[in-house]
Design a binder for these strands. Structure first.
Lengths: 153, 153
DNA sequence: CGATACTTGCAACTGAGTTGCAAATCGGGT
DNA sequence: ACCCGATTTGCAACTCAGTTGCAAGTATCG
């Protein structure tokens, strides 16, 4: 589940959301699209080359406005970091895998209709987000288990 | 899903886990049991009366050792806070509801067998935790929507 | 182009959680 | 019951993701 995000056009998304089309928003949005997997604000900031430098604070603010506009989606992890992905690229109801060692987050694909049907009714509140996350060791980290010096979180 | 945690005995749990039975660990463990819903380290610290004062740092360290020993279970939220609940009180696979306004977390009950069966196989990694969390407004906060001055996160 | 509302960058701050280290406590062996 | 090494605690200082206030800059609309 790591393909097909490139049909999301930054300018078009901002237009539709009624947000001003600033360079900073376009740069951040492009970084999220380019990543093609959920990434953190810090990763976005570090991945920007000198030409498209954007202040770290701005990255946070842009992500917040993009999330509020429904353009990106935030995903929290066990260690309190927030990851962002394009909202347009998936069904809002899908599961993620988070490696507690290398801290990479991958998408496991959309949840089946039956699963969602089963989860929501049990909730007698006004729900607006459903997040399923599986934590553990990814294949790479598991393979390198014996070579590692430090311990996972 | 807020009952039946009191059968977890602090001393017995520590004994079984092979952890030293210090006052601090017992005090923190009692606070988690007393809460009868997932609570944060800060809440635990504030809920302690003068007689059972434990340093804030110790609360974090105790929770970490209790989690590692499998006595309590940590649950992350969208705003990066960690909630803890007794591991013995539920099936490890259950869903939580988190109110993005009052930040109270409640348990929605265990996930059905079919749901878990559906989620795990899609994951080709070494999974050790499955967390399902539904975020939104709880009934109290929804009811008071019109009265509120500040906005939810 | 010019007015106005929104956005950015900077610096200083917040708040959850961590770390280093000396003092206190636990618990197994005698 | 007491001693000693191993573990745990408290304190203070730190880290680090994320936020805030504010002045300067920029987008958009007429």
């Amino acid at each position: 589940m790591t393909t097909g995000q490139n049909h999301c056009d930054p300018l078009e998304s901002l237009e539709k959301a009624g947000l001003q089309k600033t360079i900073q928003r376009i740069v951040v949005l492009r970084a999220v699209i380019r990543a093609d997997r959920p990434i953190t604000a810090a990763e976005i900031y570090e991945d920007l080359d000198v030409a498209e430098r954007v202040n770290k604070v701005t990255v946070y603010r842009v992500l917040a406005s993009l999330e509020e506009a429904g353009i990106v989606r935030g995903i929290p992890t066990v260690d309190g970091m927030n990851y962002y992905e394009m909202a347009c690229s998936h069904n809002p109801l899908h599961a993620h895998f988070y490696c507690r060692y290398c801290r990479a987050m991958t998408c496991l694909g959309p949840l089946g209709e039956e699963i969602c049907q089963n989860l929501y009714p049990s909730c007698r509140h006004e729900a607006d987000a459903l997040s399923v996350s599986i934590t553990g060791l990814c294949n790479d980290c598991r393979r390198n288990k014996t070579k590692r010096k430090e311990e996972p979180l």
